[in-house]
Design a protein around this nucleic acid. Structure first.
Length: 519
RNA sequence: GGCCCUAUCGUCUAACGGUUAGGACAUUGCCUUCUCAAGGCAGUAAUCAGAGUUCGAUUCUCUGUAGGGUCACCA
């Protein structure tokens, strides 16, 4: 608090345009600004750049706000909460732009553009034919008409020269005089262009640091010319490297599959993981750590560590990272997140409440994002936890390889299952703590005859050693799950409970015998 | 095409003139094992190219090459 007294308070802004949803590139810009602001006890402003009425998409402002909030980004002033610099919609700040535009007109640094669209187009074509860059200033009207608001207003570049400037993230940058042209300040519809509006707003809102995307580098000379014309000091530029699509060929954009940020929410990604992942495309604190919480990112963040080169958005690694964050969740948090995606068909069953905790624990190692539980369901890998499965004789009988030379008939397997049932029947019904916490290592709970993973294993083991592990454990497991692939039989038995375990083994036994008689 | 930016394993990256160029994801093999998953161990894999500066370049300079951005009454 007291160490920044001598310095000007840091003010940043995130200024999206309401032209649709928010994608990961935009979020990353907001994230860096936010990390920087919060680390330095600054102030963050949310401003909506809605000067293009054509492209505006209704509802996007609310959608953007929701997106930002989801990943944990907040702001001190904005259209939703107000503030001393209100309004925060550019469309409501037209008077300001007009005021500064008039200043420039009075100074002789801005003038009305009298050309029609067709005339402009022919100039452009001319330049193209001559293989030179089109510069409006080469066609600047000698005696422009007075600006009455019906024509576009352009900035007059008086002395186009090479421009040099410093960017906090990119270092020293420069551009030739070709980058400087008489650009439009106010459009003929009365709205300002981005180029003009953002500079006025940043001035009035006293923004000190502009975090922006890579594509603004090329228009920076124009901004600089405007700052100069207005006679004002510019904020610091912090230009972020681009995020490329998975193929690394193109800047990630909506057209190239950049998803709506909120899609990640509906797929069961954790906001912490998204933030962690995004933070590390284009920035790294150094060292070998990769998993960071929002708090850690905030503590570690420095502009100096922002990269210059672009990075790819690789969702395979995002999935890995999401799992890492899922693993950090407490059981209760995990369960809460998971249950959103469990089909109602299952969650309304009588067996659901007593088994879901255990299912959470089993599923923990297997999911990279919560919606994958639905994929499990679709594959038939979830239902058997709650409902007795149907059997397939070929699956119930394990493979030759598993038998390790031993002969096995259906009747033989039925007998083995009967023996397993007998042994398991001797165990007491579980009365202890929830199964997901009752998986003691070693012999804890193994000798007391309680129904848990360890005691189940001990009950089954002698039979498995006698008849062959492959045959017995496979047989019991499939009797419980009905599936070729599933968690091990001990976990399954523990999860579904003693009664259900015995009942399912009985069913499998009967199934084998009946099948035998029938065939 | 003009202007501009960038360049380390397939991908995300570490290194701020001296390292056997490190980690992670992915991939491959092995171990564990009743299957699947998880886990453990191991392996393959990079400084775009060419000049210079330097005792020494991934690191600094230049050229080339490649990729990207931008040249709107869009932001």
């Amino acid at each position: 608090m007291n160490n920044t007294d001598n310095n000007k308070k840091i003010v940043t802004r995130f200024a999206p345009s309401p032209t649709g949803y928010m994608h990961v590139g935009g979020v990353r810009t907001a994230l860096y600004a936010w990390l920087f602001t919060r680390k330095n006890n600054g102030k963050m402003i949310l401003r909506i750049e809605d000067t293009d009425k054509e492209r505006e998409v209704p509802g996007s402002i609310a959608h953007i706000i929701e997106s930002l909030k989801w990943v944990g980004i907040d702001w001190d002033e904005g259209p939703d909460i107000g503030g001393p610099n209100a309004p925060y919609l550019q469309s409501e700040r037209l008077d300001s732009y007009k005021k500064y535009a008039q200043v420039l007109v009075d100074k002789g640094l801005a003038y009305a553009d009298p050309y029609s669209e067709e005339e402009l187009e022919s100039f452009r074509k001319q330049a193209e034919d001559n293989k030179t860059a089109f510069l409006y200033r080469n066609h600047r009207p000698e005696n422009p008409p007075a600006w009455d608001g019906s024509m576009p207003l352009r900035l007059k570049i008086v002395d186009p020269q090479k421009t040099k400037w410093h960017d906090l993230a990119r270092g020293d940058l420069e551009a030739g005089p070709e980058a400087l042209d008489d650009f439009i300040l106010i459009k003929s519809d009365g709205y300002p262009t981005y180029n003009f509006a953002h500079i006025i707003d940043d001035l009035e809102m006293e923004v000190t640091h502009i975090f922006r995307a890579d594509e603004f580098i090329s228009s920076t000379p124009k901004f600089l010319a405007l700052y100069k014309a207005l006679g004002i000091q510019r904020p610091e530029f912090v230009t972020l490297p681009p995020i490329m699509g998975p193929d690394g060929k193109k800047k990630l954009g909506k057209r190239d599959g950049a998803k709506d940020l909120l899609d990640y929410r509906s797929e069961g990604y954790l906001p912490e993981a998204i933030v962690n992942f995004l933070a590390l495309i284009g920035w790294h604190p150094g060292g070998n750590d990769e998993i960071f919480s929002m708090q850690e990112l905030k503590d570690l963040f420095t502009i100096e560590k922002i990269h210059k080169s672009g990075g790819n958005f690789n969702d395979v690694k995002l999935n890995w990272m999401n799992r890492e964050h899922m693993l950090k969740l407490s059981h209760e948090e995990y369960k809460k997140n998971l249950e959103v995606f469990i089909p109602e068909h299952l969650s309304t069953l009588d067996t659901y409440a007593s088994r879901i905790d255990s299912v959470c624990a089993i599923v923990r190692d297997r999911l990279e994002y919560f919606k994958q539980i639905q994929e499990m369901y679709d594959e038939g890998d979830l239902e058997y936890f709650f409902v007795a499965p149907l059997y397939d004789a070929d699956i119930l009988m394990c493979s030759e390889k598993m038998r390790k030379g031993k002969d096995l008939t259906r009747e033989g397997l039925a007998k083995i299952l009967a023996a397993c049932k007998l042994e398991l029947g001797k165990l007491a019904t579980r009365t202890g703590p929830a199964p997901y916490t009752a998986a003691p290592e070693g012999d804890g709970g193994a000798s007391d005859g309680m129904w848990n993973r360890e005691s189940i294993k001990n009950a089954l083991w002698p039979i498995a050693e006698l008849e062959g592990r492959g045959i017995v454990l496979w047989g019991v497991r499939v009797a419980l799950s009905g599936k070729e692939k599933s968690p091990d039989p001990f976990m399954l038995a523990e999860t579904i409970g003693k009664d259900e375990t015995l009942a399912r083994i009985q069913r499998a036994e009967t199934f084998l015998k009946e099948k035998l008689v029938l065939s």
